[in-house]
């Protein structure tokens, strides 16, 4: 995609300037890479074994097992729970009674202002103080659900509000009850609009699972540091861990973008203003979504 700035046809002078800039910037970037490689070489980080060690099946098996068994499982489970709780929170916030929406609004704002890491501490060290023991896996799921259900509540709310009143008014005038119109007419359409945002939120969730590293959870980052210690190649193993995460998240982000484009094409325009394009839960608060501020 070319930007509006690069789209116009250049004259002879402009073309020359672009050519010069291309050569110079390529040289500078090349020099940058060269310096990095020289530095790596000087510090003995380019020894082939440091890299070939990573191609053992055991390394990949352990990393990918940790990824699927811990990072992805926790993320998916927390997503399923957050989708459910988030729906409840969103419906409550859209309620007409101030007794319902005020406290829920405060609740959502409070939870969204707290760092995820604190939820992990609260769950993992705080809950056992009250005699609750869910195991590390359970605590991580609880912590991530506590945070992400508030974010999803905002996504639901934005999705429902983006639909306009016509839909629910039409349903009500057909004689449907409030809940019938919500579950049969409004939500199915709202959820479709929210899909890209939900997928992007899943990316954030997967990233957040690595925070459980700090409580000794055996997710892929922890597994990576163990392997790195064993193979004595910290840089290479951790870079591999990073690249695996990036590959998974990049694929999901692309999927979210694809969903969004398809949605636009099919339903002409309105897609819930997604963390989709910006991909962070907090970026949800774009003007049209009016949320936590």
């Amino acid at each position: 995609m070319t930007s509006i700035l690069a789209s116009d046809e250049l004259g002879p002078q402009g073309r020359r300037r672009v050519r010069i800039a291309t050569v110079v910037s390529a040289l500078v970037l090349g020099a940058f890479v060269a310096v990095a490689l020289i530095r790596l070489g000087q510090q003995g980080q380019l020894e082939p074994e440091l890299y070939t060690d990573l191609f053992q099946a055991a390394v990949w098996r352990r990393l990918l097992t940790a990824l699927v068994k811990y990072n992805l499982s926790v993320a998916l489970l927390a997503m399923a729970l957050s989708l459910t709780i988030g729906l409840g929170l969103a419906l409550g916030r859209l309620s007409r009674s101030a007794w319902v929406y005020r406290p829920l609004g405060a609740f959502v704002e409070f939870f969204r202002a707290v760092p995820v890491l604190l939820f992990i501490f609260l769950a993992n060290f705080g809950l056992p103080q009250y005699g609750i023991d869910l195991g590390t896996f359970g605590f991580v799921v609880v912590a991530l659900t506590a945070y992400h259900s508030s974010v999803l509540a905002e996504i639901y709310r934005a999705g429902i509000l983006s639909l306009g009143r016509g839909q629910s008014e039409a349903a009500l005038s057909l004689g449907m009850s409030y809940w019938q119109s919500m579950f049969l007419v409004v939500l199915p359409q709202a959820v479709r609009r929210m899909l890209p945002a939900i997928v992007s939120q899943l990316v954030t969730l997967i990233k957040d699972t690595t925070l459980a590293f700090i409580i000794g959870f055996s997710e892929m980052l922890r597994e990576g540091t163990r392997i790195a210690e064993f193979l004595n190649n910290r840089l290479q193993t951790l870079l591999l861990v990073a690249l695996i995460f990036i590959a998974v998240n990049y694929a999901l982000s692309r999927f979210a973008t694809w969903l969004e484009r398809r949605q636009r094409r099919r339903y002409g325009g309105v897609v819930t203003p997604a963390p989709g394009t910006l991909e962070d839960p907090a970026l949800l608060d774009q003007p049209e979504v009016a949320t936590v501020r």
Binding site: L5, A6, A26, K207, F213, V241, F245, I246
Partner: peptide, 28 residues
């Protein structure tokens, strides 16, 4: 947004890398 291809590429790579890496991994 510049019309210089190497810069566009490098910037795209930067964004893809740092937006998809978990912050914990980056810190470590």
């Amino acid at each position: 947004v510049s019309p210089v291809p190497p810069l566009v590429r490098a910037a795209g790579l930067y964004v893809t890398f740092f937006r998809n890496i978990p912050l914990a991994v980056l810190m470590i």
